[in-house]
Nucleic acid binder design. Structure first.
Lengths: 218, 218
DNA sequence: CCCTGTGAATTTGTTCACAGCT
DNA sequence: AGCTGTGAACAAATTCACAGGG
C-alpha cells in the first residue's frame, strides 16, 4: 500500500511514536509526575524534542509555554486520537510456540489490548483455553468473526499458510494485520499490515553489528 | 541514533529489504527458478521494481539486460554483503514465554541464525536445555561472553530490567541488540538496536484499522 | 524489444531557528 | 527565562523516466 494522508499529517512513523509517548506518559503518571516537557519525552523516547512537538501537532493537543504538557491530559489526548482509550480487540491465528507467547504477552501486559479469540487446526489445542483465550477450530474463523466482528488479526502460522489466513481474515472483516510469518502478504489497499519479521530484523542487526558503523536506533 | 552512511548508500530500510529479497530468492532457488527480474522480486516483496534495482546498486551486483538476475548469484551476493552466508550468532536473555518462543523460532526456521546460549535468573530454568540451547545463570553473562564473544544480544526480559541487561550485554562486547522489552534503550552511538515493540505495532495497526485509510504496507 | 542502471524530480520525514506566550 | 508551535531549510527515501546493452 502507498502512504495514507491523515487530515493533519501523521505518518506511520509518527503514529508509532505516539504510542511510545503514551506508554512513557502512563509510567510518568504512575510515578505521580504532573507535567512533562517535549525535551523530557524526547530523551525517554530516544528522539529529538522538535520531533516530539511536531508529532503533537497532529493531535491538536497544546502544551503551555514555560510549563510543558499535562501528563494526564496528553495521555488521554493521544488515546483519543489513536483510539486506544477503549480496549483494542484482536484475534490470533496459529497457537504454536509463538502464538502462545503472544497470547501471554498481551494477557499480562496490557489492559487496553485484548485478544478475544484464537484459532488453530490442531485438535489437541482446539477447545482449550490458553492465557484466558479460548481456542476455536480454524475452520470456524468466518462463522465466529461474523457473529463478533474484530478489526485486527494476528497471524502466527507457518509461512505457507500465511497468505490464505490473511485472505480469510480480510474476507471476515479484519482491517489490520500483525504478521509474524516470514512472508510478504498481498492485501487490498485499504488493509494495513505490520510485519514482525524476526529474521529480517535479526539479519539487519547482524549487518550493522558486524559493519560497526553509527546507526539509527530503530 | 543518527543515520549511518554505508560506502555506497544502503540505509536501514534497504538492508532490511535485502534480507527479504534473499529469503524470496532462497525459495525461488528451491523451486528451481534460474533467473528473476526486478519486477518479479518487487511483486513478491511488495515494493516497486525501481526500489529493487536501487537496492541492488549497493551490492555492486549487476543483472543482465533482457534477462534479469541469476537467483543463485544474487542470493550469494546479498549474503556476502550482509554477512549472512556464514551463520549469525546471538545470545538471548530472558527465557520466559516469549524467550522460549524466540528460541523455538530460530531453532526450527533458520540454519543461518544460531542462538548459542541463553540466560535467565530463574533457578528452575537454569541448567536446562530449551530448543537445543543451554540456559546459563544470568549472573554469568559476562564470564561466558568473555570466553566466547557474540555480536548480538536478544533481550526478552521484563521492561524494568531491559536497560540493565542492555548495559551488561554491551559491556560484554555485543554490538547489536534485538529488544523485545517495551522500553527505549539508551545505548552508545556505535550500538545498533532494533525494537520489536508488540504494543506499539498493535496500536499502530489499530489506528489504521479504525481510521480506515489507505496505508502503506509496512 | 525487454530488461537493467541511474541522474533527476519528487515526495516524505526531520531538524533548525525563532516568534510568541506566560 | 523557559517553554511551545511552526514556517522554512534540509536531508533522506522513493519514484520517474529514459539511456544503454544484449
Amino acid at each position: 500500500m502507498k502512504n495514507k494522508q491523515l487530515p493533519n499529517g501523521a505518518s506511520v512513523k509518527s503514529i508509532r511514536r505516539l504510542s511510545v509517548y503514551r506508554r512513557i506518559l502512563s509510567r510518568l503518571i504512575e510515578e505521580g509526575v504532573q507535567t512533562v516537557r517535549s525535551h523530557d519525552l524526547a530523551e525517554s523516547a530516544g528522539v529529538t524534542a522538535a520531533q516530539v512537538r511536531r508529532d503533537f501537532m497532529a493531535l491538536g493537543y497544546r502544551g503551555s509555554p514555560n510549563r510543558g504538557y499535562s501528563c494526564r491530559d496528553l495521555f488521554t489526548s493521544i488515546g483519543d486520537f489513536m483510539g486506544t482509550n477503549v480496549p483494542v480487540k484482536a484475534v490470533l491465528v496459529g497457537v504454536g510456540n509463538l502464538g502462545r507467547a503472544i497470547l501471554g504477552y498481551f494477557d499480562t501486559r496490557s489492559v487496553n489490548i485484548k485478544i478475544v479469540a484464537c484459532f488453530d487446526i490442531d485438535q489437541q489445542i482446539v477447545g482449550s483455553e490458553i492465557f484466558n483465550c479460548y481456542c476455536y477450530p480454524q475452520a470456524n474463523l468466518e462463522r465466529i468473526l461474523k457473529r463478533r466482528p474484530v478489526p485486527i488479526g494476528i497471524i502466527a502460522v507457518p509461512f505457507r499458510h500465511a497468505q490464505e489466513v490473511a485472505d480469510r481474515l480480510i474476507a471476515a472483516g479484519v482491517r489490520g494485520i500483525m504478521n509474524f510469518a516470514p512472508a510478504t502478504l498481498h492485501v487490498p489497499e485499504h488493509i494495513y499490515v505490520e510485519d514482525m519479521d524476526f529474521t529480517a530484523s535479526l539479519e539487519t542487526i547482524s549487518f550493522y553489528a558486524s559493519h560497526g558503523m553509527l546507526v539509527h536506533q530503530d
